[in-house]
Every structure is written in C-alpha cells, then in structure tokens.
Design a protein around this nucleic acid. Structure first.
Lengths: 223, 223
DNA sequence: ACCTGAACACCGTTCAAGT
DNA sequence: ACCTGAACACCGTTCAAGT
C-alpha cells in the first residue's frame, strides 16, 4: 500500500502553471503580444523571470497554453439539442467570439499548433458532419473545410485587430475601406469597386455565419 | 519644362529595396523566421544593419514586403480561359503552392495584412464569382468564404511546417498522427478514431481542392 | 521542490559620423 | 543621398545560489 503523501503547505500566492497562464492571458488581452514579456509577467506575479521557467518550458509553450485556455473555454458548452447545422454554427461562433475577444489567439493559431485543442474542435465538427448524414469517405474533407474556414476567419480577424489602434471603432475602419474601394478604377477593380457600398453596413459576425452556411449547403449538395 | 535629372551612377551592388526584399525572402526560405535578422541580412548584403533602414522602415514592413513578393508571383498568371470554377481552382492552388514553398508567408498572413495584395486576390476571386452568375448581393459573402478558406489552409500549412524539422517527410508525420488518432478512445473521439485510417494516404493538395469544390457547390446551391 | 535575480547572448532600432 | 557601425534599450533564457 502506498502511504498517503501530503503536499507541502503552499503560500496562497504560490506560483503555479495555471496562475502563470491566467496572468499571461490577461497581459495579452491588455497589451497584445508585445506586452507579454517574461520580465513584465514576473513583475506582475511578484517574482523573478527565472521562476516562470520552473513551470513552463519557454515562451512558445506559454503562448500555446494561453491560446488553449481561451479556446477550451470557447468550446466548453455542450452541443445543444438543435439540428446538426445549428450545432456547427454554435461551435463556429464560439471560436469566432473567442478570437474576437482575444485577437492574439487568432495569430497564434497559424504559428503554433495546439494539437489537443485543435483535435477537440475537429472532433466536435466531425461528429456533427456525421450527424448530417455525410457518408464516411467524405466526412474528413467536409470537417476540414469547415475547420479551415473558421481558422481563416480567425486569422483575418486577428490581422484586422492588429492593424488598428486597440479600441478603434470597427465601423470607422469599414467606412474608410469602403471609401478606398469606391475610388478604385472600375476597369482594374470591377468587383471591389462594385461591392464597396456593401462594406458600409457590413457585419463581421453575420458574414462569418453566411460562409458557414455556404459550406453547409455545399456539403448537403454534394453528399 | 523640367530639365532631365540624371540619377547618380550607382555601383552594381548598390543597395535597393528590391535587393533587400529578395535577400530577405531567401533567408526566410532557408532558415525560417528566426533566421531573418537585420544583422544577418546586412552581413549577406555586405553592409551594416543601419543601411537597411534607409530603404525599409522596420522589420514588419520588410516581412510584409517579403510576403507580398511571393504572393504577387503566385497570382501573376493570367486567368485561363476555362470555366470560372477552373479559374477559382487555379488561383487557389497558386496561393496554396506559394505557401507550401514559403511557409513563413502563411504565418505572416494572420499577422500583417498586406492590404494591396490581399485586395488583388479578393478582386480576382470576386470576378470569378460574378462570372458564376451569383447575384450582386451575394457576391461579397461568396468571395469572402473562398478567400477565408484559402487563408485558413495557408495558416494551417504554415503551422504544420513549423511544427516539424525542415525537410521532414510529410508522409511520416501523417502516419504518426494516424497512429495517434487510431489509439484515441472511440467513446470520446469517435470521429477522429474513425477517420484515422484515411489520414495515411491523405494528400494535402487534393484535400484543399475538395474544400474549394465544396464551397463552389454551396455557392451554386444557394444562388 | 521551488524561487531569486544577476548575467549571457542576442535582438530591433537609432544616430552621429562619414562619403 | 546613401552608407557605416558603434551604441542603446530591450528581450528570452540560463544558472549558481538560496530557502
């Protein structure tokens, strides 16, 4: 029989991987990627930079853990009891809203594969694809298309967020882009010129869902 | 009348924005993002780090320019005279192959919006969407879905390339992932467990095209 | 076992000085 | 106008020393 080993008493403010990751998420939210340094993180946790290395191997691992933390929360909700289409939409919106709230996480998705979390998202999508009645041989491609679209939007939202001052009104940005596109030479940019007016009352979230619906329609059309 | 001003004679190896960007692309290809430093770049160009700042404002601008360079080449080919579907596939494959050859560029797409180049790609997609007969009000959403999917795959390919040693055989990686997925608990990961076997003879490029076809089918089904 | 903080090896960027 | 390279202000990471 193994004797019960008792952990040594710890100060309430003792360091832990969870506390470090939590503080990292808060710093990333507040100041973006450039705001997260081991020195600043250590200062916030009232310790030295070296202490952090006892709990995380390096900065990349910390960024993966921070991205995991926000994504895990985003997909924590149980699938509702609606149609499989609704479940896909709900899952996709969960990821969308998480990146909207934490743009730095969208950037990380194209840099550092957080394999277990990505697998969990893929699994959830795949289960709904199966529920849609897609034959086995076509499920992988269908789920991949959905996941890649979701990640593509995540990346673009992150890029958009980076390209403006934090707190900039999205409507102003869209209006400025709409003006720019309207002024393009219609001979060279017929499409952009034409859709410029649509940009003004464009809703990112609505547009995102329209893309999901387009892929769902494709899945249903092909299988 | 303005008098003809003659540029001063320049040494054949004089610095220029183009030579700097070209060298940066080569260094990124050879050694990845961490291999591109102003010191190493300056050494390669036989000058000091400060000289580069006369031609580019900072490192971000250099990365945008390098990404632009490879993407511009990727979409340089004129649209062929096939169907609009074929033109979309050709354009998408151009971006796919460019990121496959320069994975660092895929990472940049989620970090730094290279607006003129992105606009050019969006325009090209939009023109084909119009040629497909999609009504004006639905063109923006259709083109966005295609672009976001393409960028999502680009980002994931970049992430995959980063996560392995350069030169690693993709087949080995897929086999390893397939083993891992096959071992997952079927109760918790029914989908991943089921598709594990398909991973073994998975072709990234083919899969990418299948996703494009899915979105095209959705566009045709909905409009 | 876990923390401390100085020190190391780097970076991007600036800038006075040159040509 | 363009280049040089030392110097500045930072960064991730390590590690001997502590508790």
């Amino acid at each position: 029989m193994a004797t019960r080993t008792r952990r040594p008493e710890r100060r309430a403010d003792a360091l832990s991987r969870e506390r470090i990751v939590e503080a990292a998420v808060e710093m990333l939210d507040a100041a973006g990627e450039s705001g997260l340094t081991f020195r600043a993180l250590a200062a916030r946790l009232r310790t030295g930079p070296g202490a952090i290395y006892w709990h995380v191997a390096n900065k990349d691992e910390l960024l993966v853990a921070a991205t995991d933390a926000v994504l895990t929360r985003a997909i924590a909700a149980e699938p509702s009891d609606g149609t499989p289409e609704d479940a896909v939409r709900a899952l996709a919106l969960g990821v969308f809203d998480a990146i909207d709230a934490h743009p730095w996480a969208g950037t990380q998705l194209a840099r550092l594969p957080s394999q277990p979390t990505m697998l969990r998202i893929f699994e959830r999508i795949g289960q709904q694809v199966r529920a849609l009645g897609v034959p086995a041989a076509a499920r992988f491609a269908s789920a991949s298309a959905l996941l890649n679209y979701i990640l593509g939007v995540a990346g673009q939202n992150a890029a958009n967020a980076r390209s403006v001052e934090p707190g900039t009104d999205r409507g102003e940005v869209l209006a400025a882009v709409a003006d720019l596109w309207a002024d393009l030479d219609p001979a060279e940019y017929p499409f952009a010129h034409e859709v410029a007016t649509q940009l003004r009352d464009h809703d990112d979230r609505e547009q995102f869902l329209a893309g999901i619906d387009l892929i769902l329609a494709g899945i249903e059309a092909l299988w």
